[in-house]
Amino acid sequence: MTIELTNITKNFGAFAALDGVDLKIADGELLALLGPSGSGKTTLLRIIAGLDWPDGGDVSFDGENALKRGAGERQVGFVFQHYALFRHMTVFENVAFGLRVKPRAIRKDEASIRARVKELLDLVQLDWLADRYPGQLSGGQRQRIALARALATEPRILLLDEPFGALDAKVRKELRRWLRSLHEEINVTSVFVTHDQEEALEVANRVVVMDKGKIEQVGTPGEVYDYPATAFVHGFIGESVVLPVNVAEGRVWIGDQPLNITAPNVGGPSKLYVRRHDMQVGSESIGLRGAVRHVRSFGAIQRADIAVCAGGNETLIEIDTPRDHALRTGETVELHPRRFRIFAD
């Protein structure tokens, strides 16, 4: 099932939660929606599921308008961040719910329902919990039951809202890997929301980075990490060092010091973005230097706070360098970005 979103807008009062979102999701994809809190991820997911309606724009599934159908008719499985399990039903009945509420004409008989639920509980590896109530499960178990419940009716699309948000780091890692292999097994078009970049980069085929109700970039995990399209994406994904610069006629200035690098497509006040591990300390000079303020060493690297003079102001940056070249507090070092990006302000 492909999903196509065209120019989706959604306002809450005067506040634009979604502001012209365009997105195409291919069949069988595992897509991550990544963005800071309040960026509109949940809102977008709810609109796809039919739990909310956009103020403008179109949603289509396989080229067919989905907006004229309600949540129950979209064949979308939704996994809520806080699971939303039915507390008065056993795990078994929770998973069976979607099968039991079908119109009588297409409802399966009791034996088939039981077989299907058993199959799903096996899939999430929790068949031994069938008779428990949700209140008697751990967070990770609830999450998997919520997933089994959503999958019971064979949805054509699976939507997961921060599926691992409430779990501790170790369980998250386990479930992450598990979700990936599950997706490989059932291969249903899936979108999951997260604000954990590591999770998005590790699990998804493609990542959508959102900010303030807009899509900033869509790409594979490698693309968004290595070629961030905007300053926001560079800052949001991975660790960045940011320096204020000025670009005039292709030349880059930091304060009144020209740098021996070029920035062809930008002009005026800008920001220089460098990955923390791409900032090298060494002999090569591009005109960027700073004073070492503080050094901490752990493992193979040393992390240093370096004060860079930019015009009248000092900017304190944090970089990671190998330990073979020991830095001393107080010394002035040449800085050389192996790779960098410049974005106009």
């Binding site: 309600g70 129950g72 939704f78 509420v101 009716t153």
Partner: peptide, 12 residues
């Protein structure tokens, strides 16, 4: 969300 879950699972 409990009600939304039910609706999304096809319950009227």
């Amino acid at each position: 969300e409990i009600e939304e879950a039910a609706a999304s699972l096809g319950a009227n």
